[in-house]
Design a protein around this nucleic acid. Structure first.
Lengths: 178, 178
DNA sequence: TATTGTTATACTCTATAACTATA
DNA sequence: TATAGTTATAGAGTATAACAATA
């Protein structure tokens, strides 16, 4: 592959957040939606996304990009393909995500000693500073949500982790039975 | 506004699902992500979306469009603006969503008796049949997830509803303090 | 003047398919 | 041949801004 400098065509901003939270509108009949675990999850996810967006508005990231920054920071030298796998993305998506980080000077690609097809991803000094700042902000903010959930916070987190594996197993079973 | 027949430029298919679930990759260090309620929620949401997509693959809907169908079915005559509000969308998004439903002959716009600026949204007979089929499928499927969560299912749903309001309040407070 | 819905546009996000270099 | 990454493209999703009709 060409190791020449590439021109990346990556987004310049963070995506627009939802217009408004998805909270129940008084007087509307939600029918079956009110019974569904999936819809409750969607409502919560929507509210948290909006909240994350506002809490980090000045730092120019998205939840996904924050996650990528953490992963590269914690696993220096990781390949793009592994980043894709960890984030549930196609290879081409991991490329764009990496480009976004390198365009800002937060990460860089280095040659992989074992396999010349691969890159090793590393944070720059700037990236490390940015990550430290972001981690503090995001953690504080998340802890605020946890406080709001009181003594249900820990069990909610555990239940969500279990739900993710339950749903993934269900999806895999459907894929299988095709 | 023109009540002439419009040419809708709406998508023909359902969006591509994530490439793969976001489950933890063994051997990777997730750092702070493993501590965050928000990341646990993201993992669950990702898995459920993929699962919904596969469970309804033959029915050509997305979670959002399913929700719109339920809302219009349950609240006949509702305005587009109200649909936007209920779904956390901009007006222009509700327009596209409505176009999508009308293009398929599942819903129709009728004049609003009280205000000539508004449309009243209604399901067609076809839309009602489709909705009945979808509701059965989605409910069965959601109950499968609930069964997988055992006796934690009800409390998880309640916790998620509370989390949505906690996060929405936090987001509103941030918006306020700007 | 404000509101409802529309139009036109811009931008992001993701995947697919074909390609190059390397294993 | 298979894999890692790249390129080019197509399709989806959302919002913004300006506009017409109506209140």
């Amino acid at each position: 592959m060409s190791r020449a400098i590439r021109r990346s065509t990556v987004s310049k901003t963070v995506p627009e957040p939802p217009e408004a939270p998805l909270l129940p509108v008084p007087g509307l009949d939600y029918g079956v939606l009110d019974e569904l675990l999936g819809y409750a999850l969607r409502r919560a996810q929507n509210a948290l996304y909006l909240d994350f967006y506002r809490a980090t508005a000045d730092l120019d990231v998205s939840p996904q990009r924050f996650a990528a920054l953490v992963l590269v920071g914690r696993n220096p030298g990781m390949r793009q393909g592994l980043l894709a796998q960890a984030m549930g993305l196609h290879r081409s998506g991991a490329l764009r995500l990496t480009d976004w980080l390198t365009d800002r000077g937060w990460a860089e690609r280095r040659d992989d000693a074992e396999d010349a097809r691969r890159w090793g991803l590393h944070l720059t000094a700037t990236g490390k500073r940015k990550l430290a700042l972001l981690e503090r902000r995001v953690r504080d903010h998340d802890q605020g949500l946890m406080r709001g959930m009181g003594d249900h916070a820990a069990r909610l987190k555990a239940d969500l982790e279990r739900l993710a594996t339950v749903a993934a197993a269900a999806a895999a079973a459907l894929e299988e039975s095709k």
